[in-house]
Amino acid sequence: MRAFDRFDELDQQSLPQGTQVNSLLAIATVLAMLGLGVVIRNNTLAATTVYEDRINGVTAQLPANWLIDAEPEDQTYIFRATDTGGIPFKTYIQVSIVTVGADANPRNVIDALNVLGPARLSIYHVVSIEETRLGDDVATRITYFYVDTEENPFLETEPTVVEGVDLVVIRRNQALIFTFRDAAATFEENEFYFRNFLETVEY
């Protein structure tokens, strides 16, 4: 009996049958799995949860796993959903209500926000103000930048340039302000959260 360990001695002159089919199927399987992986990723990122504020009459779908704060200390908003894992800035969507006169329009509210902006936010800079619509309602949208700095000096964090959007609609004698803020570097990437929110918000 002769010894072997080389299988090319076993009269295998060519590749086994089915090798090509196996190789092509492997590529097809990997492409299909990666495609499915992208779908899973997108679905996970876009997953939402319904949030209902019955007192103020606002219902919306907010990103799943975001932290919802409906009891602010300073009463400046009615609720805020924050991506607590956001780095360097914790992305958030916020809903605020201010009382306005009977003849007020969204532009009046935006102008007021624009005036208050430099006092509230560091290096506040408005990029655009535009008329738009939210469903059937007339709305005004303001886009701005500011610099966010950590209040705790011991954390020694670098300032972050933040891009923000405020969208205002009028409901009777109330102005609803929908705000989205994110680090400027990732704003475009994450803006779909705000678009999804606006598409589902009821007030």
Partner: peptide, 20 residues
């Protein structure tokens, strides 16, 4: 095994999935 053994047509796809 693909080269040496007798394997079914889904051997490699199965291997990749299993490893993953």
């Amino acid at each position: 095994e693909l080269l040496i053994g007798r394997v079914p047509f889904f051997w490699l796809p199965f291997g990749l999935f299993l490893a993953s």
